[in-house]
Design a protein around this nucleic acid. Structure first.
Lengths: 218, 218
DNA sequence: ACCTGAACACCGTTCAAGT
DNA sequence: ACCTGAACACCGTTCAAGT
């Protein structure tokens, strides 16, 4: 008389590919209850599998989180690129559209975005493919800046450096917005537009930009 | 009238003022090993006190963290204000100096800054005095913006809104910098200067700024 | 009123053992 | 090769009991 088993068809593995199933289950969990409440026991239970089965596919919990982050950067990459493309066909400012896409992605995928920048995996050096994927997303920003420079719409400085300047802005909007410090979702959207607009105004090539120093004039 | 209050036999297991001692010990711990590794057992052990003694003075661990955050906002407030004051006496741009002070504070007190914006206490509404203290620090930025507007050096828009725009930038620089994504400490400083400079250039009143406005909120 | 120590319900991780 | 179940060393928190 066997006790009632959960789900174990054919006496074989519950999932053909447990690795991707674990990632899928973890994604659902963090989307529903947040990253901080993600437990290995929970993802195991959700798949009808032991809570230690995960260790056959991932070194530890951090490795699982790094994998989630990697997947996040992949779709993030796509999202940013398609925003640039659409801006091009719609005759809109590519950088501004990308900035808005950035903030919108973070707000729509808060747990995933937090995972991508989580402290527990922030040393991207420990996860080489994660670093590669993150660099790929960052490259969209750098390339767009370079293109805008060629078109003469952005001041000619190191594109990677300008990319970091812009990145800081949208990342700040995203994190403060997620923390609820910038008001409603609608407030955040308008604020992001405002921030991007201000930043890109300051980056437009004009003699005044190059003459101004730290101390104020007038 | 010397000495008041004498109700505890000195030299026993009773601590003179355990409440502040707990805060002090917790601060040392997070500064040394980071917020995530802060355990109530550890702070108790450090004071030679039971690990549950804390519950006589704080509702739970979140309340302790909120208290740490509150203290953080207090000195943060002071830091920002004195940066503005020094800029005034030294004829420098107050907003830019404040922005630099912001990023420098975060980099020099990483664990404390992270605690101040920790997800576990991000709903400042649960801790009213924390919200008050945070608003106090934010007010320094708003007031400085208003002063700059009166001097005609900043575009005339809602100061609170402009403050959020600037806040997002420096917060993004701080968090990305702490995560190690912006290079060395020196790189971050220069990047922050760059970001602030760009932002404030975009905020200077000039007809050009109004030609490309984002749709206004109403 | 303040603090303790045991107890409880969690957690990530390891490991010998099963299939 | 893949997975299990017990075990281990941690957590935060509660509670009856001590002073």
């Amino acid at each position: 008389m066997p006790v009632k088993l959960k789900r174990k068809p054919k006496g074989t593995y519950h999932h053909p590919d447990l690795q991707v199933a674990l990632v899928e289950a973890a994604l659902q969990t963090i989307r529903k209850t947040g990253v901080d409440s993600l437990t290995l026991r929970d993802v195991g239970l959700r798949l009808g599998v032991s809570r230690t089965a995960l260790y056959r596919h991932f070194k530890d919990k951090s490795a699982l989180l790094a994998r989630l982050a990697l997947e996040g950067f992949r779709v993030f990459h796509q999202t940013l690129q398609s925003a640039v493309d659409q801006a091009h066909t719609n005759k809109k400012d590519p950088l501004e559209e990308m900035g808005m896409a950035y903030v919108n992605f973070a707000m729509a995928n808060q747990s995933h975005y937090k995972t991508m920048f989580s402290d527990s995996i922030c040393t991207w050096g420990d996860y080489p493919d994660l670093a590669v994927e993150a660099d790929g997303a960052f490259a969209v920003l750098v390339n767009t800046i370079a293109a805008e420079q060629r078109a003469g719409r952005i001041i000619a400085e190191d594109p990677a450096r300008l990319a970091q300047v812009i990145w800081a802005g949208v990342h700040g909007l995203a994190t403060l917005g997620m923390a609820g410090h910038l008001g409603s979702h609608n407030d955040i959207i308008h604020l992001a537009r405002h921030h991007c607009h201000t930043l890109f105004t300051g980056l437009r090539p004009t003699p005044r930009n190059t003459t101004r120093r730290a101390k104020s004039t007038s």
